[in-house]
């Protein structure tokens, strides 16, 4: 039997590729500001965070009854990785022009780059092991490994905070957007705590 795309599945893949299409169109029409390299970095980074946050939302929403999301979670995560990989590639190859000395100097001294680099390095094994071969091979450890995303997404939110001109501790400056993600991701992670889950399931009954 040939399986068809579900509407949600179609939507996920459309949403996954649309930002890249729009980005390439903007690049081609030269509408990416006077500083296109920075614009590409910001947009791909932002898109990666959006998809990874969406992937975190799947499980809690599935508990509330939207079961199909569990089947879409992986594609959302992979799209997140796609944009993260573009972000990092442009940063290394175009922004820094593969200048290893400058890269090492700045990764070592700029906390926002350090945190972003750590998040990406942790994300790579998750993307690599998304193939069924690794699912089979790793067994129970596959799930354990993929729980790393609970660390990765907060790191990305921190990276976002620090890449903006604001003060995380006093919540002043350009903090509104990163703060929104921090709250969203915070709630999505809190929902996973055993105690919170219990309370919620009692409420549902």
């Amino acid at each position: 039997m040939r399986r068809r795309f579900t509407p949600l599945q179609f939507l996920v893949h459309l949403a996954g590729w649309l930002p890249l299409i729009v980005l390439l169109l903007d690049l081609w029409r030269d509408t990416l500001t006077a500083n296109p390299i920075q614009a590409i970095e910001q947009r791909t980074g932002y898109t990666a965070l959006v998809f990874l946050t969406l992937s975190l939302a799947c499980t809690p929403l599935a508990w509330w009854g939207w079961k199909e999301l569990l089947q879409r979670r992986k594609a959302l995560g992979l799209y997140g990785f796609l944009y993260a990989a573009l972000h990092v590639t442009v940063f290394i190859a175009v922004d820094y022009g593969l200048d290893l000395n400058a890269l090492i100097r700045d990764v070592g001294t700029k906390q926002y780059i350090l945190v972003g680099a750590a998040a990406f390095l942790l994300l790579v094994p998750l993307a690599v092991t998304s193939f069924e071969y690794w699912m089979k091979r790793l067994g129970k450890n596959w799930k354990r490994l993929h729980r790393l995303v609970y660390l990765i997404v907060p790191l990305i939110v921190l990276h976002f905070f620090w890449a903006r001109k604001g003060n995380l501790w006093t919540l002043s400056g350009d903090v509104a957007q990163p703060l929104t993600f921090a709250i969203l991701v915070g709630v999505l992670l809190l929902l996973r705590l055993g105690a919170v889950k219990k309370v919620l399931s009692r409420l549902r009954r």
């Binding site: 795309f5 996954g16 089947q71 879409r72 992986k74 069924e132």
Partner: peptide, 11 residues
């Protein structure tokens, strides 16, 4: 799972 990966690659 494997079907959704194929979809990804197809798209």
């Amino acid at each position: 799972v494997y079907l959704s990966r194929r979809d990804f690659i197809k798209v």
